[in-house]
Design a protein around this nucleic acid. Structure first.
Lengths: 126, 126, 126, 126
DNA sequence: GTGGTCTAGACCACC
DNA sequence: GTGGTCTAGACCACG
């Protein structure tokens, strides 16, 4: 099932990128699977309080990346293979882990302290 | 000693924000201390290959936040107390780790898996 | 009605300051009143032959001074009270006349001569 | 006699232009006449608390406009004819009067009101 | 179409 | 050489 209920828009990153990331995260987490129908641009735009063009931009980019199939006049459906999902998961997670490590190293944090911090803050966030 | 050798610019966030973050990280890590001279805008701009104005924007904002002092014709110097450093460290670590934990949760990653990944990728980064 | 047809840019003062002054003058003269829509940045920029950012800078400062309101996607509108207009008028006239009187004094011009000159050149300007 | 005692630097216009204007005003007012020696760049710079380069820039421009004669190692002297003084006076005064008229017109002020205001504010300014 | 932001280039005063 | 400012161009989200 594809939903946008859990997406909360935040300030610093562009909205269409947040939407793209939300869908990719759903693919990796398994909440969105091959064949699922995406909500229409209008539904998403009213739900998020965002301009339809912004949704269109996100959908279009996902289509160009090969994760979506759009028929004019019909709903868009997710088109993705198991291999694509696995590759996507590896890529996204590596990026995030790499990012967290880089940040912590920049602050002069050691690996042991990092493990403690990650464990400590895991439950807190939202 | 203040240096920008370890700063590598990335695509998604504005350059001046990356510079601000780099300096704040240096303050937190202790590589930049009270009284240090910052490299001039031109030095940094040629080193990073960006316009001097971008550095100027970063320095100006840091000055407004109370971390450094600029006088025309003289180099900018870091002006910061121990308390400011501590508060900054707490704030930055919570922000960064929190946002990345949120990302991993969105991918369906469990805490144990995250800790393993962190341990595995720690040495890779650089 | 708000217009920029009567604004001619001159060399010595920054363009954005000239725009600010022109709008303030319009407020004082009563040609721009509360609720009026300002022309868009692009309209003004093409009319004056300058970059839209220059207009943006002027509008933004006027907004910070409390004379107009901007919402993304909609035109900016003038928001100003009678009291603000009166205070602005007094301030601007005193500033401008004072500075010019000072110049004339520096040239050794006496008051009587100045009055004659003012009377003589009044019609010429435009 | 040439002096810079009456020159007070103000914020918005470039200093070297203020110096140029001050000397031109002296020429028009008759306080600086043909053959007068100008104070050295160093004297002026210490008196005004300004960098010698700034004075140099002003002197150089005045020299290029034909009002000054500089000999290397000697003091600069004013070189100006009666005709130049008269032309300069006419030009500068017309500019100022034109400027004041334009400003007042922009505020919707009528000629009669302008004469009253000029008369009223004449004594006030310093 | 609208306003908002980031980056860039040129120029300024100053040491 | 230093920091500071004005103008410009490109891009963004939004209506």
């Amino acid at each position: 099932m594809v939903t946008f209920d859990t997406l909360e828009l935040k300030g610093d990153t562009p909205i269409y990128l947040q939407i793209i990331h939300h869908i990719k995260a759903g693919l990796v987490a398994g909440t969105m699977v091959h064949g699922d129908e995406l909500p229409s641009r209008r539904q998403v735009s009213t739900l998020l309080g965002v301009n339809p063009n912004t949704i269109q931009k996100a959908y279009k980019q996902l289509e160009e990346e090969g994760f979506l199939l759009s028929h004019t006049g019909a709903k868009s459906t997710i088109q993705i293979t198991e291999e694509q999902v696995f590759a996507l998961k590896t890529l996204l997670i590596e990026e995030d882990i790499g990012s967290i490590i880089e940040h912590l190293k920049a602050f002069g944090v050691e690996k042991e302290e990092a493990l403690v911090l990650l464990d400590k803050f895991w439950e807190v966030g939202s």
